[in-house]
Simulated assay, not measured.
Amino acid sequence: MHPAPVLPRIADVSSAAALFADLRHAPAERAAVALLDPEWRLLAMLDFEGRRGSVSPSLRDIVRAALVQDAAALILAHNHPSGLPTPSAADLTFTRALARVAQPLGLVLADHLILTGLTTVSFRDLGIL
Rank of each mutant, 00 (worst) to 15 (best):
M1D: 13
M1L: 13
M1I: 10
M1K: 12
H2C: 01
P3Y: 06
P3H: 13
A4P: 12
A4R: 15
P5D: 11
P5E: 13
V6R: 14
I10D: 00
I10H: 02
I10C: 04
D12G: 08
D12Q: 06
D12A: 05
V13T: 14
S14D: 15
S14F: 14
S14C: 12
S15D: 07
A16L: 04
A17V: 07
L23Y: 08
R24F: 05
R24G: 06
H25M: 09
A28E: 14
A28L: 14
A28Q: 15
R30V: 07
L35R: 04
L35H: 05
L36I: 02
L36E: 05
D37K: 00
P38M: 07
E39C: 01
E39A: 10
E39T: 00
E39W: 02
E39K: 02
R41Q: 08
R41I: 01
R41F: 02
L42C: 10
L42S: 11
L42F: 07
L42A: 10
L43I: 09
L43C: 03
M45L: 14
M45R: 15
L46F: 10
L46I: 09
L46R: 15
D47N: 11
F48R: 01
F48D: 05
E49A: 14
E49H: 06
G50H: 03
G53Y: 03
G53V: 00
S54V: 10
S54E: 15
V55Q: 04
S56V: 02
P57E: 08
S58P: 03
S58T: 08
D61Q: 15
D61H: 15
R64Q: 14
R64G: 06
R64P: 02
L67H: 02
V68T: 11
Q69K: 06
Q69G: 04
D70W: 02
D70C: 08
A71H: 05
A71I: 03
A71D: 06
A72M: 00
L74K: 00
I75D: 10
A77L: 03
H78S: 05
H80K: 01
P81K: 06
S82T: 14
S82L: 07
G83T: 00
T86H: 08
T86L: 12
T86V: 10
T86W: 06
P87T: 00
S88A: 07
A89N: 05
A90P: 01
A90N: 12
L92F: 00
F94N: 06
F94W: 06
T95E: 13
T95A: 15
R96H: 12
R96A: 12
A97M: 13
A97D: 14
L98Q: 05
A99Q: 13
A102Y: 03
P104C: 05
G106A: 09
L107T: 01
V108G: 06
V108Y: 06
V108P: 01
L109E: 04
L109Q: 03
L109V: 11
A110L: 11
D111K: 00
D111A: 01
L113M: 14
I114C: 11
L115F: 04
T116G: 09
T116K: 11
L118P: 00
T119K: 08
T120H: 05
T120C: 08
V121R: 03
S122Q: 09
F123H: 01
R124W: 05
L126K: 08
L126H: 07
G127A: 15
G127N: 14
G127L: 13
I128L: 14
L129V: 15
L129M: 14
